[in-house]
Every structure is written in structure tokens, then in C-alpha cells.
Computed example of a mutant assay.
Amino acid sequence: MEHDAPQPAPAMRPAVQETYGPADLSAAQIFAGGFINFGYWPGIDLSRPLDETDRIRSQQALYRHVLDALRLPDAARLLEVGCGLGMGCALALAEYGAAAVTGLDIHPAQLRRAREAHAETLRREPDRLRFVQGAAEEIPLAEREFDAVLSVEAAQHFPDLTAFAAETFRVLRPGGRVAVTSFFTPDDSPGRPEDLAELLLTFADGLDIARPVGALANAFAAAGLTEVRTRSIGPGVWPGWDAWLSRWWDEDTWPRNFRHAWERRLLDYYVVTAGRPTDR
């Protein structure tokens, strides 16, 4: 595949632009390995001090968990929405036999880093990997182009889940599947956004958006996707993430409040799956 011609930069919310631009969240030690996710920790011993190997293993495990949920066909064409540095794209190529993987991200700085990180693969296998700039709500790719769409810990940033769902339906081939994992509120009880903003800086400054997991499930169904399923994987995420954070932050500091928000049932981590019907 040839690199797409440069496109006008999609509009970004200021907190997203700052966090993934000059701040470069991927360079932070808490995201060792460049995956930028909280990790999936079953099988990792949390009773001992965690190291960078454990951290990278947890982030890879989250991708594998989501990729397994897609039940990919042989030689699948795969789109990742919110690909960041493209580490998950590379994992899908290496371990899941994808024919081609496209990483989509709204931030040009992240795409530059992704192309640098995977320069050898892009040179050696240009038909199997590409990175494209675009928003989740306005994907600049063809209708029915992909067998599967995934998004790993990016949907909490998407301003319009309805538009994202419609675009997902559009780019999926009939019979294709989508799997999204991220953190959402478990319900739409009044006060959830305010409660989370009080506990967590990322909600207070607008980086993360507090929405119920049902909002994404309902958006998928309204877009025409079927077999919509939501499943909590919080027990496999929050204790490990909190144990990892404890290397740098004390119990009473705001990053440790992710676990407290989960324990108070204000927030949880989910996998949401759906499919495009074969006759549509």
C-alpha cells in the first residue's frame, strides 16, 4: 500500500492535542513499550514488585484479548482506530496472520512516531501496514474495506460515539466484526461526570469523557450492527493497573483513584463487540 496523501488535520480537542503531542504520553515510563493502555493483568503475580517486563506483557495481553474477541478470518484486513504508536498493529501482523493492518489516528505527532517506530516493516512490507490520519467520527477510508475494526483504550476520547458507530458500520464488510475496549461508567446515573472529575484529573481536564458503556452499545445497534455485547473485564485491569501505579504514586494521589472509582462503581473497563450482518 502506498502512503495516503496528506489530508487536512481533523479537529482535535485541546486536551487530546496536548497529551499526545508535545507531552508524548507514550514516552512516560508508566506506558513502557509504547502501547499506552492500562493493561490486562491475569496471570501476572501482583503480590511481588512489578517490572517493565510485566508492564509490557500486560499491554500486549490487552491487545490479544481484544483481537481474540474479533474471531478474525484468515488473511483479515484490519483497522485500528486510535492506533497511537502502532504497537498493536504490529502485534496483529506478527501473531494473528492479518493480510493487512491500517492504523488510524487523529494526531499527526503520533502518526509520525508510529512511522518511525515501524519504519522497517513499512519498508519491507508496504502492502501489509499503513498509518492514516483521521478521526474516529470521519474515517477517510473506503466502504466495506475491512474484515474487522478494533479500538483499544481510545474511545474514552471520542467526542461522538454515534458517528464512530456509523463509520464503523460503513467501513466493515458484511459479516465483519468490531471490538472496542476502554473505560466507561456502568450506567447513566446523574452525577457520574462530576463524581469522576472530582476524583480523576483526566476527566476534570477534558482528556477523558464520562459516558455509560450502554451509549456505545446503543450507538452500534442504531448504526445497524448486531449481536452487540458488553462485558466487564475490570477485575483483570484495575488491580494490576493500580499495583503498577503504586511504584510512583501514593494511595492518596489522584492516579490511584482509578481503582477507587471502580470500587465505588463509578467506572469500569469493558470489551464491547458487534458485527455487521452478512446481508447488509
Rank of each mutant, 00 (worst) to 15 (best):
D127T: 14
F31M: 07
G206L: 07
S151Y: 00
A154I: 02
V132R: 00
A219S: 11
A179W: 03
E153V: 04
W241H: 12
P255F: 06
E52Y: 09
S189C: 10
L79F: 00
I44G: 06
E251I: 07
P277E: 11
A165G: 08
R229L: 11
A11C: 09
V149L: 00
P212A: 10
P190M: 14
E251M: 10
G21L: 14
P10W: 07
A92H: 05
Q133A: 09
A90D: 07
R211F: 10
A219D: 02
E263V: 02
E2K: 15
R229N: 12
R130L: 08
D74Y: 09
R280Q: 08
L85C: 13
E2A: 15
E167A: 12
A179I: 00
V171M: 05
E95S: 15
G176F: 02
R123Q: 15
D250Y: 03
P239A: 11
A99I: 07
G21V: 13
D54M: 07
A222Y: 09
V237Y: 10
A5M: 13
I56W: 04
R211E: 11
A61Y: 03
W238H: 15
L141Q: 02
A142V: 01
G21N: 13
P73V: 00
D74P: 06
E2L: 14
A165E: 02
F169Y: 07
H260M: 09
P14H: 12
G191P: 03
P277A: 15
V101M: 05
A155R: 02
A119F: 06
T102C: 08
A163M: 03
L79P: 03
P186R: 15
R280T: 07
L122Q: 10
T19W: 12
F31L: 09
H118W: 12
A15C: 10
P22S: 13
N37S: 05
A5D: 12
D45P: 04
A99L: 14
R211D: 08
P235Y: 09
P14L: 12
F38A: 12
E116N: 15
G234A: 15
P239V: 03
V272A: 02
E251H: 12
E194P: 05
D74I: 04
H107R: 14
V180M: 00
R276K: 15
L72T: 01
A166D: 06
S189K: 15
A28R: 15
G103M: 00
A261Q: 06
L91I: 05
A166W: 05
A28I: 07
L93P: 04
A114L: 01
W254E: 12
G43E: 08
F184V: 07
N257L: 03
A222C: 08
S189P: 00
L201C: 09
F38V: 07
L67W: 05
E18G: 07
S58E: 04
D105R: 01
A61Q: 06
A163H: 05
V132M: 01
F169C: 07
V66C: 11
T168Q: 01
D195E: 15
A109T: 10
